[in-house]
Design a protein around this nucleic acid. Sequence first.
DNA 1: ATGAAAATGGAATAAAAATTCCATTCATCG
DNA 2: CGATGAATGGAATTTTTATTCCATTTTCAT
Lengths: 274, 274
Amino acid sequence: MTDQTAPVSLEEFNHRLAEISEAMPKRLRQCAEFVAQNTDRIAVSTVAELSAGAGVQPSAFMRFCQLLGFSGFSEMQKMFRETYAQKWPDYATRLENLRASGADSPSALLAEFVEAGRLSLENLASSIDAGSLEEAVDVLAAAPMIHIVGFRRAFPVASYLSYAFEKMDIPAVLHDGVGKLNPRHAIRKGDVMIAITFAPYSQETIDLAAYARGLGNPVVAITDTMTSPLRRIDALTLAVSEVDVGAFRALSATLSLAISLAVAIGAKRDRANE
Amino acid sequence: MTDQTAPVSLEEFNHRLAEISEAMPKRLRQCAEFVAQNTDRIAVSTVAELSAGAGVQPSAFMRFCQLLGFSGFSEMQKMFRETYAQKWPDYATRLENLRASGADSPSALLAEFVEAGRLSLENLASSIDAGSLEEAVDVLAAAPMIHIVGFRRAFPVASYLSYAFEKMDIPAVLHDGVGKLNPRHAIRKGDVMIAITFAPYSQETIDLAAYARGLGNPVVAITDTMTSPLRRIDALTLAVSEVDVGAFRALSATLSLAISLAVAIGAKRDRANE
DNA sequence: ATGAAAATGGAATAAAAATTCCATTCATCG
DNA sequence: CGATGAATGGAATTTTTATTCCATTTTCAT
């Protein structure tokens, strides 16, 4: 049953997987999907565990292995166990290796950003004020409509929030500035706004937030410091500070805060509707 | 036979090993020596293999495991397998548990997302293929024009890339789907595309990438697994897998990869222009 | 609709691995 | 030097895991 085309390296394996997974029946595709996303578990798991993870019978997983060119699961696992040793060194070492591959190589840069992201996340977890966060969730969960504003560097955050709200069926509009239409008309009394901006703060965001505030509407601000101009208009401020790499700043912490906010709002609304 | 002092972490294990290996009989010391030097193999080997490596009978290795406090080899191996798999806890289950214990407060949720983000970043650092990344940077740095495509969950990434390129004066257009205009007209021969999509893959992205590829243009894909449909069109694939929290997935790793890519391209172009 | 082919689930079987047991060897002390 | 207990090797046993087989369901073309 052994097929001479059995992959002998991770690269070959991935390639093979991509190549044939399109034309696979349902269950086998489930296997492919699960394996693609959990490649690192293969070396240390049993067929039973993996097939359960993929939501499939062991026999189906068996067929999957054979389709890839292995004689069975054992042979496939052997390949992963052999390449396992290289993956073992811990995270710190791996990061070192990435860095060492040349100070200004893409992978070294990636290592920098990964590290910056981790630091930012740690910082976020310890610095966020649980009370303010909860208050923001309460206010937003009760909103008839949520307006999301954020330009330039804040725009990815705004659009991500918009996507999350859409998925959870929460009424929200993203003010994206397309067509330079005046967005104020869409804002009604009682609506709530999420304003996102970082230094150098964009005037449009501040203006729109100030307008909403002027109507007496609550504004939740996601911003970088406590001295942000959004503070002045008495917005409920959630401060996030990102560690930067050179002149560049990633958004790991900000996005994590945003998605948490969105999911918490969704959860709260669900509870309220029961 | 189970000993309550069985180590539950790598640190405890090493400590225990050092502590008792001095007062061991010959064969068992051989085991200790071998294990200390090949800790990484324990998770993926059998007793037979390990005992042979240590130059010892399987039964001797068995006694060694018991001396360390485990009930047998299986239990010891389990510890190592879990330590390795620890990075991939089942978040769905954990979130369930959190809920059950009434700890689904916004800050608990945030903590989950922060943790998920950290794990995703670690995984990114270890799983990214330095060669592919470098190749992507080379191709993109040489592009006369970069087209960025990504909808829904991928849109924040696309817009962030667009922002970064703008800041670095790199010619790039974001295909955002506004006005449902046909974006194909803007793509010229020789341009390079960055296509971003995650399961469930959005057809528009795939179609546009396929069109670009049809022109003979290179396509760099940022996607979630090796089974992504973008593989089919022979795109240069950068795979990122994010750890998710319940049904939700943050973008920490993906954005870190994106910003690294952008900055690396900028740096390379600068060097070329000097 | 109907039959053929493909896919699937689950139990039965085979293989492999872990664990135990005991006869033998080795070291130690009177 | 011989007795005693610890240490060891190897085979027997048990447990776990992989693999196969076949009855049943699903899919698809006619």
